[in-house]
């Protein structure tokens, strides 16, 4: 099955081929199916961000192997896979958050609207304003709710007066579905909110700078099911205006919110496809094992 797939897409494989797996890790080697190349269509018709042959190293250890993947406009791409498979690392390459780790080295090509984000001409500060990020643990600043949301706008000088800033804060909170809950206490500390509210505050803070892409690193993993459901609904709404990549450990969440799903395994992109197809008819044995809960 793998062979045929590769033959079908020889052209693509030229670029995405990974060296054949020669691992000492016997457990993985036991799996007859070796991860030679990505199965499925990693490219989108209308791409917002494109990653090509991305390799990431932490010191001498390679964390990502030759991953190519597109994020299409107005789509939610879910990145799933067992812990330590590199999905978060990959996500953090998309807005150069990995720059902050001194031993981290990124190879390959990632573009935003065809602009190379690792080029010297690309300012990481500007990039992160365009590609926002929501983290696993809600991390509001120890400031008021208002100041949390207004921070980015103030930082980048997006508002020219108080009224405009108010407007940005209120719209962002509304978009994040938090405004009604906090409208009476905008000047109370953001850290006083519940976990789910804090995470929505962080989302509001991210969208306040009007990014084009939002990267979410397990945004609901620290939340209860009700807060999770609210966040998931929110992600679906945000899709109208933003391109979203979400890392999640919850299969149900990936199935609910994403259009396409990418399965990572040990730093390799094993399979990618329409979310329906991945969950109902996975082509790769590793993917199937993972989503059926036999492995991972």
């Amino acid at each position: 099955m793998v062979e045929t797939d590769i033959n079908m897409r020889t052209e693509l494989m030229e670029s995405t081929q990974v060296q054949s797996v020669d691992r000492s890790d016997t457990k993985v080697a036991d799996m007859k199916q070796q991860v030679n190349a990505t199965i499925g269509e990693p490219f989108a018709k209308d791409p917002k961000m494109q990653a090509r042959q991305v390799n990431v190293y932490y010191g001498n250890k390679q964390a990502i192997f030759n991953v190519s993947l597109d994020l299409g406009k107005n789509e939610v791409v879910a990145l799933i896979g067992p812990s330590g498979c590199g999905k978060s690392t990959f996500l953090r390459c998309m807005n150069r958050m990995n720059d902050t780790i001194p031993i981290c080295r990124v190879e390959g090509n990632i573009t935003l609207d065809s602009e190379d984000i690792y080029a010297d001409a690309m300012d990481p500060v500007l990039l992160r304003a365009r590609v926002g990020m929501v983290f696993q643990k809600p991390n509001p600043f120890p400031k008021s709710i208002y100041d949390n949301v207004a921070y980015g706008a103030r930082l980048h000088g997006l508002a020219f007066n108080k009224a405009e800033l108010d407007e940005i804060v209120i719209t962002s909170l509304q978009k994040a579905g938090l405004f009604d809950e906090v409208k009476d206490r905008l000047h109370e500390p953001g850290t006083g909110l519940s976990g789910g509210q804090q995470q929505r505050l962080c989302i509001a803070r991210t969208i306040a700078v009007s990014p084009e892409v939002i990267l979410m690193d397990e945004p609901a993993s620290a939340l209860d099911p009700i807060a999770t459901a609210i966040i998931e609904e929110l992600i679906d709404e945000l899709r109208q205006n933003y391109t979203i990549a979400i890392v999640t450990h919850s299969m149900q969440q990936a199935a609910r919110v994403s259009q396409r799903t990418a399965y990572f395994h040990l730093g390799k992109l094993v399979e990618i496809g329409e979310t329906n197809q991945i969950f109902t008819n996975p082509k790769h044995e590793l993917t199937e094992n993972y989503i059926t809960g036999r492995f991972g």
Binding site: R128, G132, M133, V134, Y151, V209
Partner: peptide, 15 residues
């Protein structure tokens, strides 16, 4: 200082 605060600021585009 928790790294999450640094990440939050950097993620929004603070230098």
């Amino acid at each position: 200082v928790p790294p999450s605060i640094r990440q939050a600021a950097l993620g929004i585009g603070a230098s």
